[in-house]
Every structure is written in C-alpha cells, then in structure tokens.
Write a protein that binds this DNA or RNA. Structure first.
Lengths: 141, 141
DNA sequence: TGCAATTTGACTTTTGTTGACTATAATATA
DNA sequence: TATATTATAGTCAACAAAAGTCAAATTGCA
C-alpha cells in the first residue's frame, strides 16, 4: 500500500504508544511536524481522524509554552462498558458544545472517568459511567 | 471469442492475485486505467462485475490521496462456510444500508471476519461467522 | 434485430495537505 | 503586579488527489 503522509504519522505514533510504559505518549505537535517535514496542522489532522474516541483513544493537550499533545490508548474493555463510556463521552461533548462545561472540564472529566476506574471490573465500570453521567446531569442541569 | 477490455483487465488482475503472496493485491484505479488506456470507471466496472463477493472476492478501498483498491480472493472451499460467510456479508450490507453501521465499519467487520479466522478449520468457520452475526445483532439491535 | 454486456465521461464523495488566522499558556519585563 | 512577548496548539477553508456513481452511447451476440 502506498502510504500517505497521514498513514506514516499514524504508524509512527502507534509504535511510540506500543513501546510506552502505559499506552500513553506525549508529543509536541510542531516537533513531530518537523520530523515529517509537514505543517503542524497535518499532525492535528492525523490525531483527530485516527486517534479519536471512536478509535479507542483519548487525547488531551495544552497550548502555549511547554505545550503538548497527550494520546492515551484506552484498553479494550467489554462492549457494555465501552458503550457506556461512549455514552458518557458523548454526553460530555454535548454539554461542552452547549457551553455548560468548558473544553478543559470536558477533558478533565473524561480523563477522570477513564483513569479513576481503570482497575475496576468492567461490568462495574459500565454502571460507574452511567452513574457519573447521572450525577453530572443532576448537578448541571 | 474476441476478448473485451473488461476480460483483459480481469485476466490481468487474476494473474497478479495468483502471483501474490497471500491472494491479495492492491492497485490504484487510475494507474491501472492508464495501463489499459481506458477511463478509471472501467476498472470499477470490472471489479464490481468480476471480483464481487458472489465470485468469492473481497474488495476494500480508500479514496483521496494515495487511495487504493484492495482485492482479496477468499478461497474457502467448504460450501457451508462459504454460505455462512455470504449470510454474514449480506447481513452486514443490510445494516449498512439501514445506516446502523457506517460504510467503514461494514468494511472493517468483513475484513475482520475473513482475516481473524483465516487459519481456522473451515467447518468451524461456519459456526464462527454465525456467532459473529448473532453477537452483532445482540449488540446493535 | 433486440437485448445484455461493455465503454465512456460528467459529476459526486471521500480523504489528505497546506497555510493563514485564532486561542491559550508560560515567561520576561516594566 | 500588570502587561507584553513568545511559544505552543487549534480551527477552518481552500485546494488536491484519489475512488465511486450513474446513465447515455456503443458493441457484440443469440
């Protein structure tokens, strides 16, 4: 297969994640762009198309000095937990779009939900995600 | 019998598949059209009439820069496995048409079904295809 | 001759690439 | 401390590079 630039960057990042300790990497957008001789927004494109939630990744970032993009591969849990995680994430995205929470809060809550309950059995995780969603609705709406 | 252009392209592709490592080739539509001095849609025609699922082939593709068409010959000689694979594929096409899954997911699932269980004995494959179909129904519907 | 298969090309959709502009965070400076 | 500067990342729209769709025109058999 003739690999597009986007394919190559994707591959590169996946190798990095594979080699990482905890399925999580932190890159600098401009630096990676430099490595691949492309514009920085190309990196953004790859991340948004290949490392989104639908593909099982969580991304967080910060602008400004010492900025970064962090990519975490969400371990495969059972379909039920995955579904309720997606529901929760959809909900969080919705209330972010409606400006009920900020972009930062959105990221924080996603991170929290994923990490805080990483070790729980996945059947419980499913209930936990639902509970989080309910609690937020109760609080915010 | 005078060979039509479509016949020649078909023959050409079959030779390529025969020579390939894994009964799978990847072409670029425009490039192949160039080779045969015809319009690209002629290639699409050949692929859709001669390399469809009914004839025992799986095709995948991507548009845009560095796009491709991938053709895989499914040689699965057990008629039972072949039938249940066709059933599964029909099901996947149906739920794609009903927009329960996307075109991309449709392709992905077909690919998965064919490749993940490539090495299984074909009698088991029949059961596996059915199990996949059931699991999807359970999950999606 | 008439029908089915083939061939063609205009138009559509999807995917990838680039760059100008915007937003945000850290740091230096008044 | 407030403000300016610098260093990041994000957004969006234009453009490019493929493959797909569809129907009209053509061809070749039975």
């Amino acid at each position: 297969m003739k690999k597009s630039l986007a394919d190559k960057i994707e591959e590169y990042l996946k190798v990095l994640i594979e080699r990482s300790e905890n399925r999580q990497i932190e890159i600098q957008r401009a630096e990676l762009a430099e490595t691949f001789c492309c514009v920085p927004s190309q990196v953004t494109y790859v991340i948004s198309t290949r490392f989104n939630e639908k593909s099982g990744y969580l991304t967080e970032s910060r602008r400004g000095g010492k900025g970064y993009v962090k990519i975490t591969r969400l371990d495969n849990d059972d379909p039920l937990a995955q579904m309720s995680r997606n529901n929760l994430f959809d909900f969080l995205d919705r209330i972010k779009d409606e400006q009920i929470i900020s972009r930062r809060e959105n990221e924080m809550l996603k991170h929290l939900a994923v990490y805080a309950f990483k070790e729980w059995p996945s059947e419980e995780r499913s209930r936990i995600f639902k509970a989080i969603e309910e609690a937020l609705k109760d609080y915010l709406m």
